[in-house]
Amino acid sequence: MAAPLAEQQAARLAHADALAAERGFALTPLRRQVYAAIVASDRPIGAYDLLTALEPQRGRVPPTTVYRALDFLVEHGFVHRIESRNAFVACCELDRPHQSQFLICETCGETVEIPGGELAKQLSNSAPAHGFEVHHQVVELSGLCAACKIHQPGSAAGR
C-alpha cells in the first residue's frame, strides 16, 4: 500500500535536507519552505503562487527573495523550471544529475518528469553539425494526460 501523501512529502523533504548536508550547503528555512510548497503542489507552481503559499508562515515576502530561493533550488537540482509555464516542479531524481523531458497536460496542467539522457545526448550531439553550441536544454511535450484524454470531446477515448 502506498504511503499517505503527507508521509511521501515529509520523506522528500528529509531526503532533500540530507542531500544538502551531504553536498555541504544548507537549505535555509526559506529555501526549505519554498521547496516544501513545490513538493506539496500537484502541478507546476509559479513564483507568485509560491508567495501566496508562504504568506501564512512568513507574512509578505518580496518576490526577489523567492526568486533567489528558486534559483538556488534549480541550480542545485532540487527543482526544474517548466519554461512554457514559467513554473516549477520538484525533481524526481535528486540523487544524481540528469536530463529530463516533461509531459505537460494542456487541460489539467499535470506535469510528469521523464528521464531522457539518451534524447538529451542525441539533441546535444546534433547541434554542433549546425554550428550551434548548446548551453541549456529543455524538452517539454504538451498534450493530454490519460484522465483528460478520456473526457476530451472528439478524442478516440472520449467517444
Rank of each mutant, 00 (worst) to 15 (best):
L50E: 10
C105K: 06
G77P: 03
G24F: 06
P63H: 11
S100I: 10
P62Q: 15
C91H: 11
T111S: 12
F88N: 00
I104D: 01
P62T: 06
L50Q: 12
Y48F: 07
F88K: 04
V39C: 04
T52S: 13
V74C: 11
V89T: 03
G109N: 05
L27T: 07
F78A: 09
Y35S: 01
A90S: 15
Y48T: 15
P29M: 05
R96M: 08
E75H: 13
I38V: 15
Y35A: 04
S41Q: 09
C91V: 09
P44R: 14
L30W: 02
F25W: 12
I38D: 02
L54A: 06
L103K: 10
E110D: 07
R68H: 14
H76P: 01
S84R: 11
A87G: 07
Q99N: 13
G24D: 04
A53F: 01
R31Q: 02
A53V: 02
P62L: 12
V34M: 01
T111V: 09
R85N: 04
E83W: 12
Q33D: 15
D49Y: 08
I45V: 15
D42Q: 13
A87T: 11
L30S: 00
D42K: 10
V61W: 03
P29H: 06
E83P: 01
P56F: 04
L73K: 07
F88P: 00
R68N: 14
R58W: 11
Y67C: 01
I45D: 03
S41P: 08
R58C: 06
A36F: 01
T65A: 15
I38H: 03
Q33M: 13
H76E: 13
Q101S: 08
R23P: 10
T64L: 09
I38P: 00
E75C: 00
T111Y: 05
A40M: 00
P62M: 08
A47I: 07
F78M: 08
V89K: 00
L51T: 04
Q57I: 00
E22K: 10
F102D: 05
Y35D: 02
S84L: 12
I104A: 06
I104N: 10
G46S: 12
